[in-house]
């Protein structure tokens, strides 16, 4: 029986992530936790994110919880969702500038108002909210069974700009082309919400629960 720790740092609704994981892996032990030991003992770790990135990073603290997350990032199948992707980069423009984890090189930027329009000239709204296409830039075990350019549910105002193209697992177009999924070794992170993306999202979570962290 595999165990999945969903990191609870006291922000927002993480119930959907847990419910979706339980739905695709009824035999897995899914634990919503802020206990560093439980994270250390879990087979795999999900780092969901909601709200503002400053709050997310502050809530993780400087103590044992942050340490346990960094250990998992080095060793275990790790899935970051939404802010859980953004937090992996060096820096975010949100909140007047927020230093992040520097696990992946790159930065997180606000959708630039001057680029937010369709070819027809109609404005593109921010937040980027709704179902958009995810273009898989390379093969990965987590894409198994998911069609190229499948739609996933997004809701965000900031996007990741990866500095190393090798880390880009998928891109999405919205005014510009941004990194909608990142992958490096045992780490996979997505800007969209697989727990809210119906069949395609559930498939990705199912793939994650069965993934050994190798690519």
């Amino acid at each position: 029986m595999t165990s999945v720790a969903v990191i609870d740092y006291g922000m927002g609704n993480l119930r959907s992530v847990c419910k979706a994981l339980e739905h695709v892996a009824p035999s897995a032990r899914v634990q919503l936790t802020s206990d560093p030991d439980m994270i250390r003992h879990a087979d795999r770790v999900v780092f969901p994110g909601q709200g503002a990135i400053g709050g997310c990073i502050t809530a993780l603290g400087q103590g044992g919880l942050r340490e346990a997350v960094f250990e998992a990032l080095r060793a275990k199948p790790f899935l970051g969702i939404c802010l859980g992707l953004q937090a992996l980069y060096d820096f975010s423009e949100e909140g007047g500038g927020t230093p992040c984890f520097s696990v992946l090189p790159g930065s997180v930027r606000l959708f630039p108002p001057e680029k937010m329009h369709e070819a027809s000239g109609l404005p593109l709204k921010v937040p980027h909210m709704g179902w958009n296409q995810v273009h898989q830039e390379r093969a990965h075990p987590l894409w198994r069974g998911i069609p190229q350019d499948a739609r996933f549910y997004f809701v965000h105002s900031y996007y990741a700009e990866a500095a190393d193209a090798a880390d880009i697992a998928a891109t999405t177009d919205y005014g510009l082309r941004f990194t909608s999924a990142a992958a490096r070794a045992n780490i996979f992170a997505v800007q969209f919400h697989p727990e809210k993306s119906q069949k395609a999202g559930l498939k990705l979570l199912e793939n994650f629960v069965g993934w050994n962290g190798a690519v």
Binding site: S16, K19, L202
Partner: peptide, 25 residues
């Protein structure tokens, strides 16, 4: 497993929290 919105009678921060905890997005 798609986004859910709930309205009606949301008056306080506590009401928002209760709906989000129940599974609303």
């Amino acid at each position: 497993f798609i986004p859910l919105t709930v309205g009606g009678g949301i008056r306080k921060v506590e009401d928002v929290r209760r709906m989000l905890n129940a599974g609303a997005d």
